[in-house]
């Protein structure tokens, strides 16, 4: 029952989006099981959906001519496909492969845009999560890759953002002043 992976993480998703905004998202996602070693998307090939990791792990690698640089792994709560969408390129920017048995939620770009019209707050909160993930990935990939003992080029750094850090920060006058003062 791969839906169990979704139910297990409903509290985190609900915390992230808010109770009243979870249903429009759930109406539009489909759940898929991905067996270990299966490629979810191939670098540079067309892509038309986001994928949210619900359980397991996805590995990201940039490829060229049969060689690759391993960027790291995505853990539950993290998405892939956001580069293709927000850059407007609509092509995968890395090869995404299941490291182990992995459950993912698929959200088509077209459904994301439909969600924008129906529930802009849900999209806003998802976009904030995408921003947090992309900032983490930019930070992780600023260093040039290293070569491990097996000759594999890889980026040393953590690519995933913990689920509880992907929500919107609280907002109000107090939070605004705290932010200005650098108080966390």
């Amino acid at each position: 029952m791969i839906e169990q992976a979704l139910f297990k993480h409903l509290p985190e998703l609900t915390d992230q989006l808010g109770v009243e905004h979870i249903k429009p998202l759930l109406d539009r996602i489909t759940i898929h099981g991905v067996s270990a070693g299966t490629t979810v998307q191939r670098d540079q090939e067309p892509v038309d959906a986001f994928h949210l990791v619900l359980s397991g792990r996805l590995s990201l690698a940039v490829e060229a001519g049969g060689r690759s640089v391993v960027l790291g792994e995505l853990l539950p709560g993290n998405w892939c496909g956001e580069l293709a969408y927000f850059s407007g390129v609509r092509r995968a920017s890395s090869t995404v492969t299941a490291v182990e048995e992995t459950d993912v939620a698929r959200l088509a770009f077209s459904d994301f845009e439909a969600l924008m019209a129906e529930d802009s707050v849900a999209v806003c909160r998802l976009t904030h999560a995408f921003i947090k993930m992309m900032m983490r990935r930019l930070h992780a990939t600023a260093n040039n890759p290293i070569i491990d003992p097996n000759g594999q080029m890889l980026i040393a750094g953590d690519l995933s953002v913990p689920w509880d850090e992907l929500g919107q920060p609280p907002h109000g006058v107090v939070e605004f002043i705290k932010s200005l003062l650098g108080v966390r």
Partner: peptide, 9 residues
């Protein structure tokens, strides 16, 4: 988000 995606791309 668009700028960050461009930077990562």
């Amino acid at each position: 988000a668009s700028q960050l995606a461009r930077d990562l791309h």
